[in-house]
């Protein structure tokens, strides 16, 4: 049987890389690391419902960048520097002194907000990669008994996410076939209601099933097949730790990890 990595490895790896990205605070490194991660995900992700998490996290990252830039430019203290354009200032009541909407937009302001946005987006992308590379179910089972209650809720939440995605497309399609085109905010209400209904009932079903199979009844659990740490697992975590010690080597670390897991 082709043994895959320990389910915690990718999370440790992604966590370390994300921390390192935040530490370097360099856009080019962040983008390069996300690029390498994308290659890893493409090679390693299996045909599972959660494999799509990475592309979803990328989309979410783009939104984060857009929102960050937009709010940064519109609201807040102007930064001195080269003016690109001047937006009309929206007058606010006097008690909101110190806050300004609109006004001059400087290049410095634009680059600094874009920088922030990209940093956040790349961290989200790295965690998304971990989510798409490791099975949430296996993660649940490798949780130590100590953090068990907490682990259960986290893992159930993460395993529901991919179901969420498939449900959305299914409901969207049914709505389209009812003659409703799914555009605009109004269509969201149409999708959200059946979606939440289904997600809720699915979670209740899962909870009932786990309950009746004795989950959480005894504090101690045995393991059918221990998820053992192999040398490859240690190697990958070790490499990731290097990036914490020396963030400037981040791109190299990412590339080496990609080679380690390459088939």
């Amino acid at each position: 049987m082709n043994r895959s990595l320990h389910p915690l490895v990718w999370w440790i790896w992604a966590g370390a890389m994300a921390t390192a990205v935040a530490m370097t605070s360099s856009i080019s490194i962040a983008i390069a690391v996300v690029g390498v991660t994308a290659i890893v995900v493409r090679n390693k992700a299996e045909e599972t419902p959660w494999a799509a998490s990475f592309s979803w996290s990328l989309k979410m990252g783009l939104w984060v960048i857009a929102i960050r830039v937009l709010t940064g430019v519109l609201i807040g203290v102007p930064m001195p520097g080269r003016k690109i354009l001047t937006l009309p200032v929206i007058p606010l009541p006097h008690w909101m002194a110190g806050i300004r909407i609109g006004g001059p937009v400087t290049l410095e302001r634009l680059t600094s907000t874009a920088h922030d946005g990209i940093m956040i987006a790349s961290i989200i992308a790295l965690l998304g990669a971990a989510a798409s590379l490791s099975s949430p179910h296996r993660l649940l089972r490798s949780m130590p008994v100590m953090v068990y209650e907490f682990g259960v809720s986290v893992v159930i939440a993460t395993s529901i996410l991919p179901q969420f995605v498939t449900s959305i497309s299914r409901i969207k399609q049914a709505q389209r076939l009812r003659g409703h085109e799914s555009t605009g905010l109004l269509s969201w209400r149409r999708i959200a209601l059946p979606l939440f209904e289904e997600t809720l009932s699915r979670s209740l079903d899962l909870a009932a099933a786990m309950d009746s199979r004795g989950y959480g009844f005894t504090r101690k659990r045995s393991k059918y097949r221990q998820d053992r740490w192999t040398s490859k697992d240690y190697l990958l975590c070790g490499i990731a730790m290097v990036s914490l010690a020396k963030p400037e080597l981040l791109v190299l670390v990412a590339a080496v990890s990609a080679l380690v897991v390459a088939p």
Partner: peptide, 24 residues
């Protein structure tokens, strides 16, 4: 399908026994 906790057949079969702490 709503009640499965694990991914593969073998692990799913073992799941209930694991929670009851049965020897391997």
């Amino acid at each position: 399908l709503h009640g499965f906790v694990t991914d593969t057949v073998e692990e799913e079969l073992a799941f209930g026994m694991e929670t009851l702490n049965m020897p391997s």
